[in-house]
Amino acid sequence: MTWSEQYIAFKTIVVREVLRFARIWVQTILPPVITTALYFIIFGRLIGPEIGQMQGFDYIDYIVPGLIMMAVITNSYANVVSSFFSSKFQHNIEELLVSPTPNYIILLGYIAGGVCRGLSVGVAVTAVAWFFSDLGFTHVLVIISIVMLTAVLFSIAGLINGVYAKSFDDISIIPTFVLTPLTYLGGVFYSIDMLSSFWQHLSLLNPILYMVNAFRYGFLGVSDIPLLTSYIIISTFIIALFQMGLYLLNRGHGIRN
């Protein structure tokens, strides 16, 4: 395929993916907005004032970046894993496999679809957050780059999950038992400075901690982690997972006999 043909194939996958989640926006965009609004009401308005300040900020302002990031992570992951697995389940992934579209374009297409969903939800949640908190956009480029990189990372992770999944149960196991605990323990609601030394060091093994803190730095200018470390960790994960995703597609794992 020529470059322009590859671009058309890429665009086709992305548009298909965006239309897929846009058509069912009540299932894809609305729920995270409602859930996050509830977080703002309960943790921000009701419990927040009792907690007081965190690293010099009102509690609600402190948790907003983490809650936005949580929605972006969950949705970029969910978009790719459910779309890819559904394609496998219905066998319409074969439409792509029999075509000359190279595997890296397939991978990039699904990633872009996941990023679009993650960002759509992220923007919607940010708009809701405006009602509840005084959002500061201290470092806009950091906000944009970190949210993009995080959405890319979890889109690839979603695809890998989709490749391995053999049933609909398999696509909910990782989000439920891995992603959600890691997100809650990734400094969304607290600073790791509050933890004992052991738990602080253990928290450093959680990649989501780096994303949440870098994202918070973008909004508030404070972080438990040096910004450069966050970029290095996120980029390393992206490169490693991209290679793995491409390897699985090239091998045809779970999609070719």
Binding site: T2, E5, I8, I13, T101
Partner: peptide
């Protein structure tokens, strides 16, 4: 969509 996967405008 299938045409798109073949790079057709």
């Amino acid at each position: 969509n299938q045409a798109g996967y073949y790079g057709i405008d």
